[in-house]
Design a protein around this nucleic acid. Sequence first.
DNA 1: ACGGTTCTTGACCATGACGTCAAGTAACGC
DNA 2: GCGTTACTTGACGTCATGGTCAAGAACCGT
Lengths: 191, 191
Amino acid sequence: MTTESPRLRADARRNVEGIRAAALDVFRTQGLNCPLDEVARAAGVSKGTIYHRFGGRQGLIDAVVEDLVAERIRGIIAAATEVPDPVERFETYLRQIWLLQYDEPAANDVLLRALPGSAPVAALCEHASTMAAGFLAEAQAAGGIREDLTPDDVYLLIWERGIIARACDQQPREGYRRRLEFTLRGLRTTT
Amino acid sequence: MTTESPRLRADARRNVEGIRAAALDVFRTQGLNCPLDEVARAAGVSKGTIYHRFGGRQGLIDAVVEDLVAERIRGIIAAATEVPDPVERFETYLRQIWLLQYDEPAANDVLLRALPGSAPVAALCEHASTMAAGFLAEAQAAGGIREDLTPDDVYLLIWERGIIARACDQQPREGYRRRLEFTLRGLRTTT
DNA sequence: ACGGTTCTTGACCATGACGTCAAGTAACGC
DNA sequence: GCGTTACTTGACGTCATGGTCAAGAACCGT
């Protein structure tokens, strides 16, 4: 996937890389819905080139999503898996995902499933959802999380946070973080 | 305020009323940020007339906000005040406000303070915030709500719900309602 | 019924985004 | 070098919104 087509003229190859790099940069800070002109300008090419090379926003996202956010999300899943206590594991997962949504608008866009037609993105979400469902089940089995919480609820909790994080522009991170704990508290069976 | 200027030509008066009525209708279902052309079309006048008569969106909102949402919000405050138990009172208030945000996009826009320059709107918010702070203090005094919850937190909880309600288009009301209880649960001291 | 005044209209400008394509430019093979 | 082909450009068309204003329409007093 990284080694595009077999033969690509030198300047084209250069541009593809430049665009990818620029997209990583711009998407990272502005989210996946930023104007493509921004990316083009950052890459020092014209908008047309992006359309020509990647076929539009969708294609460009597919080309960078792995480097852009997959690592982060997988990292969070892995880190959570390490936590021995099931309840703490579930909560750690949620907390980290929620913070990621605040910190990285691009990851947030992915988790919000705002990119309907993208295979890699869909796969990533699928994986995250599956793991989340597992963490939830284990935490519930351990008795620490309300029994009536469903995997769908967990997805919606993440979706809701994402919507909020998107609008959070001004809100300081600390306040956001603090309110996460209120929400978590509402999912527990114990005090 | 309702009886505009002393002398207004008959057609103008008719139009003002028509526009107000149309605005109530359109704002109610689409929120306060809908294109003004919509309102104009619904009123059977041209966009220019709205600008001429009301000076723009802001003025139009000021002219209808009272009939549009003030009543609802004040009603919720009044209903909550009736509840004898302080904790239940606080929770009733939040629940009702949250549901209002789901049911009426216009009210939501008001509560989100998305209309910076409008005096009536600001006054309404101010009143709601003050009452909310009171309910909170009483609920805390009764020992049913976390001590570390501040009036600011309450405002933000409402703000967050508003952002969510706005994006909720599809989400069924029942699910929204159900998740409110999770959030409320997170604010309590008791189980 | 007519003139003067008030009102309304809808075409117009501006913005900011997406997406396209003919024409110009640059690399590559020979 | 030089022609051929691949590649890039940026102006252009489009859409959706906000907002303005000269010119025409409607009203009202006399």
